[in-house]
Structure formats: C-alpha cells, structure tokens
Amino acid sequence: MFFIGERAEPALDAIERDGKLYGVRLSGEWNLRNLCEMPALRRQLRKYARSKSGLHWDLETIDVLDNAAALILWQEWGRTLPEGLAIRPEHLRMLERWQAQEVSETAPPKRDLGAILLFLYGFIADFYRQTLDLVTLLGQLLLDVGYLLRHPGQVPWTEISITIYESGVRALGITALVGFLIGIVLSYLSALQLKLFGAEIYIIDILGLSIIRELGPLLAAILVAGRSGSAMTAQIGIMRVTEELDALSAMGISHSLRLVLPKVAALAVVLPLIGVWTSGSALLGGMFSAQNTLDIGYMQFFLKLPDAVPLLNVFIGLLKSAVFGFLIALVACHFGFKIKPNTESLGNETTNSVVSSITIVIMVDAVFAILFMGIGMPI
C-alpha cells in the first residue's frame, strides 16, 4: 500500500494458491479522484473482472469506498455481485443500492387490471364530483339572480363594471392583434386554393362565414379564457390563501353574490362585444391580404360581404359568445373555490381552470355547429 501525504492510493493485488489465481484483494482509498488519476488501475480491474469467473474478491482491506467507485466496481463485475465476495457491511450496502436500482429499472411494468379499474373509478368519481359542484354553483347563481330581482338595489354594479373593464377593455389589444393575423393567414391560404379554380371572388364568402360565425367568437373565447379566466381563478385562490373568503363568511357576505355573479354577468355581456371586435379585426386582416394577393379592393369586399353572410350569422355569433363568457366565468370561479391555502394548489387549479374552460368552449362550439347547421347559410 502506498501513501501520498495522508492519502492512501488504491491498490489491487492478485491472490494465488498452489500457483493458480485464486482471487483479488483491493485496498486503499477507492474513490473517484484516485481512480481518475490511475487509469492503469481501471484497466487492471477490468482485466481481472473479465478474465475468469469464480474469483474470490476481498474488499475488506479497503479504507474508503465512495458511490462512484462502487458504481465502477458494479459495472466491471457485469452489474452483479460476484459469488466469492468479502466486504464490509457499510460498503456492501452501497453496492446493494446499485443492484436494487438496476432491478427496479429493468423490471417490466406489471399490467394490473385492478389498478386500471381503480384508476378509471377514481377518474369517474372525480368527474362526478366536479360536475356536481359545478351544478351546485350554477343553482346558487340562479338563487342569487332571483334574490336580486326582488332587491334590485343590491346589484353589485361596481364589481360588474370592474370585471368588464379588466376582462373586456384591457383585452382589446391582444384580441385585435390575434384576429388581424388570423385573418391574414386564412385569407392567404384560401387565396392559394381559389386561384387554382379561378374563383377568387369567393374568398369574401369564405372569410365572412368562417370568421363571423366561427373563428371570431371562438378566438375571443379562447383568449379570454386564457387571460381573464385564469386571473379570476387566481384571484379567488389568493383570497383563499389570505383567508379573505373566511372573513367574508364571518361578516355574512355571500361569496356567490359578490364574487361569482359579477364575473359571470360581466363576461356574458362583454364577450359578445369582444367577439365582434375580434371578427372585425380578422376581416380587416383578410381584406388586407385579399387586396395584395387577389387584387380585390376594399370597397368590393364591403359591398359583397352582406350578400355573402346573412345577418342571422351575426346573431348566432353573439349568442355563442354570450354562452362562452357565461361558461368561462362559471368554470373559473368553480376552480377558484377548489384552491386550498397553499401555493401548489393555486398553480394546479389555475392550470385546470384554463384547460377546462378552453375544452368546454370547443365542445360547446361543436354543439352549436350541429344545432345551427342549416341556419343562416346563404342560399
């Protein structure tokens, strides 16, 4: 054994009996630093580990063994412990840890039918609870509307106006930008196909129907769900964390009357307006692209649009937007009240709120498309 200062170098000695190789003895400090400085020792270890099976490995004289050296030994032994192994208990635990990790990584996953059924049961039960809570919140909202009809002086106009400003006025910029760009993209892609058939004038019909009836309300709803819906959920969640909800309950103030109703009413009113604003921006983008790609003037576009898109499509878009706003606010408040007083729950439920709102909006849009399939279409 060699010493450099107070550090013992790792050593590897062959053990012979009757002139034959019987085993290998390791001594010294087997750590990553020493092994990196002695590549010849690594080659010698690999040589003995692969030359003959059934060797006796004596590791009891090792002074220091760290995790890196244990991993190197484990790999050189072929990821298994040799049969003839003499080692200290504390060093053996390090090797067994690598062995247990190897078994857990290589073991194939078991397909347990009971676990699958249990997962499905949990999913269905959670969906049932979520639906029941949402219906309960909707019922409480209807009771609040009935109460306000009897007591109109208690309508929370201040909260409604603040929500209209936050969710509507402050969203005009992003909705206009997204709508304008979507109009350009849709017009450009449609123009490429219409040129092949010499039907460039029908781009007005395509843009008018797709934007006013579908894309405008849907884009506005998705943007509002991501922007305002998440803010509503986070606002109620922060009130839970800071115990403001408990304070309101102690003062006898209804959560649904002061928090849910203003948000639902404001979004149901403001989202149709944002939908019209988004549709107008998208049509402007479509006109801009049609002027540059198909040489269709703005005046021609304006004159042809009322004939291509019946007025009933505008009312369908407004109705869809109102329903979207109602559902987005209701879902946002539902997940807001589910937040527990910790930051992890706040982030998770806010994410669930946005994902659920967008999913419900798309599902309801599909239902509207089926119900109004033959209504408002040009003859």
Rank of each mutant, 00 (worst) to 15 (best):
A86D: 12
I15Q: 12
A115S: 13
P306R: 02
T136G: 12
M299S: 13
P109A: 00
P378G: 08
I174S: 11
E90F: 11
Y121T: 07
L181G: 07
T106I: 07
D18K: 03
A247F: 08
Q140H: 12
A308K: 07
S256E: 09
A221R: 04
L148C: 12
D205T: 15
V224K: 04
C333R: 06
G198Y: 07
L113T: 09
M287H: 12
Q75N: 13
Q130M: 13
S230R: 10
A176N: 11
L219Q: 10
D112R: 10
A86M: 09
L346W: 01
A86E: 13
S345L: 04
N67D: 10
S289N: 01
G84S: 15
G237C: 00
Y202A: 12
H91D: 08
S357D: 06
T233A: 02
I370A: 07
R7F: 08
G28D: 04
E344P: 01
N31L: 06
I362V: 12
L209M: 15
A40H: 08
P10H: 06
A171V: 10
L259F: 03
W74A: 00
P108N: 02
A322H: 05
I201Q: 03
F3R: 14
S254A: 10
P310V: 11
R43L: 05
I358Q: 00
A247M: 09
L120V: 09
T158F: 05
S228R: 07
G216N: 05
Q101H: 03
G336L: 04
L271C: 08
R50M: 01
L59A: 11
S190K: 00
G229E: 00
I174W: 13
L303P: 00
G173E: 10
H151R: 15
P310H: 09
A191G: 06
G198I: 06
A282C: 11
N352L: 08
I164H: 07
L41K: 01
T106N: 09
V145L: 15
E105A: 13
K340W: 02
L65K: 06
L138F: 15
V367Y: 05
L318C: 08
L35H: 14
F3H: 11
I328A: 07
I360L: 09
L305A: 00
L209F: 14
G19T: 14
P109L: 04
D112L: 10
S353E: 01
T61A: 13
V145Q: 10
S190F: 15
A100F: 09
D307F: 11
L371V: 14
L181A: 15
A265Q: 06
Q130H: 14
